[in-house]
Design a protein around this nucleic acid. Structure first.
Length: 376
RNA sequence: GGGCAGUUACCAGAGUGGCCAAAUGGGGCUGACUGUAACUCAGCUGUCUUUCGACUUCGGUGGUUCGAAUCCAUCACUGCCCA
């Protein structure tokens, strides 16, 4: 993997760059659609490429390990082959599942023991076997096993959780460096900053992560219940420490506004389930604000979904029709909403990149945030 | 013409003397959703009131009773069966 930092906004920490992988180049800042189980829910690969213009998507170690399992994954020749996607893939390590399925797990020095949400069977993730699994998946960018510290953790818990994440990281890196990619394309390994909302911990974690000298770095444990302002404060702090010449990935974030604020603070990569999940639940993000498509007010609004929309579905279908599809529980509603929202997210980061390059990001951002935050 | 069953909120449908403004589903309205156990979840859905609460309801009318959606009479309507 290679990162070229192309432009830095004169008035903020926003940057534009290029990440090059064996599966192609990614223009940053970028939003990465989440395809947990090897599918961006309700969206075809063709739509991902043509309508949404996704440059990289996510997969998830935890989910793919449980199903279809690594035997099938290896026989398939890796995730790219398996799902018919020839662009880059990033895989999360399962650290977030350790957090979100917390009532079914046990953290230990060795790793995390958890029960499958599918059949209840017991499994162990270690920093090493998670690297192994991601070797088998064949993701271009793999993530270290971490504990995603809850946003309301106290300092003591956050500190020991962070220290465990750091010890796991050392083991993960060692294993990564001792093993090889399986399918002929190269892989890289990102460590993850933790530390909850505590400045001293975030600083310490960012320094430790930076010292590992990997090709890119991630910030985790944010947007997990802490106040939004705290999140911005932590991003700002961590990015003063993480190296400028390497991509920075803010994990799991967020709303369109969160993303612009993140870009301003020097983040290059984002992923979030929000455009797809909220889309499936009837919420549309547009340049002019947020719409709940189940609301009655759209029932006889025959104007197109979004006249300024970034994808064909925005012009092809009316608000009234999309509302009808949601109320009638039709699958097409989920497809249209997912395509629209993802296309909007990708449009937003592309637009941000343009303004970084043209040098007026700082004046463009606040007006954009104001516009997209309205409720329609 | 005779017999039987039924009529409950937007719909379906429980409730068969007080704990009933009335279960449950559906439908409707409004929210929530941030490294996806999520086409999910929550609230509201007779009227008035911010709440407490008050008021009007269970086909119509008239009774019985301290008290009726629930019991009785009668009328209307619906379904099924027999002529």
């Amino acid at each position: 993997m290679k990162f070229d930092l192309q432009y830095i906004d004169p008035k903020s920490n926003a940057r534009a760059g290029l990440i090059t992988t064996d599966h192609g180049t990614i223009e940053t800042p970028i939003f990465m659609p989440v395809g947990t189980v090897g599918s961006v829910k309700a969206v075809h690969q063709r739509e991902l490429k043509e309508d949404i213009q996704a440059q990289i998507i996510l997969g998830n170690t935890y989910h793919l390990y449980l199903r279809p399992g690594m035997e099938i994954m290896e026989k398939a020749g890796g995730l790219h082959q398996f799902i018919g996607w020839d662009r880059p893939i990033l895989t999360d390590s399962g650290g977030f599942q350790v957090f979100s399925l917390s009532h079914r797990r046990k953290m230990e020095e060795e790793g995390v023991t958890f029960h499958s949400h599918i059949d209840g069977s017991k499994h162990l993730f270690t920093p090493e076997n998670v690297v192994e699994i991601q070797r088998t998946i064949g993701s271009d960018i793999m993530m270290a096993l971490d504990e995603c510290t809850p946003g309301d953790a106290d300092h003591n818990y956050a500190k020991s959780s962070m220290e465990l994440t750091h010890r796991w990281l050392a083991r993960g890196i060692k294993h990564f460096d001792e093993t090889e990619a399986k399918y002929g394309h190269s892989q890289t390994f990102f460590p993850i900053v933790q530390g909850c909302i505590y400045r001293d911990l975030r600083e310490k974690s960012a320094e430790f992560i930076a010292s590992q000298n990997r090709e890119g770095n991630a910030i985790g444990g944010l947007a997990v219940g802490e106040p939004t302002e705290k999140m911005y404060e932590m991003i700002e702090l961590v990015n003063t420490i993480l190296p400028k010449k390497k991509p920075r990935y803010l994990m799991g974030v967020g709303t369109p506004a969160n993303i612009l604020e993140g870009i301003e603070r020097g983040i290059d990569m984002f992923d979030c389930v929000m455009p797809t999940r909220n889309g499936r639940n009837g919420m549309l993000f547009t340049k002019n604000g947020i719409m709940n498509m189940r609301n009655k007010k759209w029932a006889d609004d025959f104007s197109c979904i979004d006249p300024d929309g970034a994808s064909d579905v925005d012009i092809l279908y009316s608000k009234a029709y999309l509302r009808h599809l949601f109320i009638a529980n039709e699958l097409l509603a989920l497809q249209i909403a997912s395509i629209h929202n993802l296309a909007f997210y990708l449009w937003l980061v592309k637009e941000a990149r343009k303004h970084i390059i043209s040098g007026d990001f700082s004046s463009w951002k606040p007006s954009m945030i104001k516009q997209i935050s309205q409720r329609l």
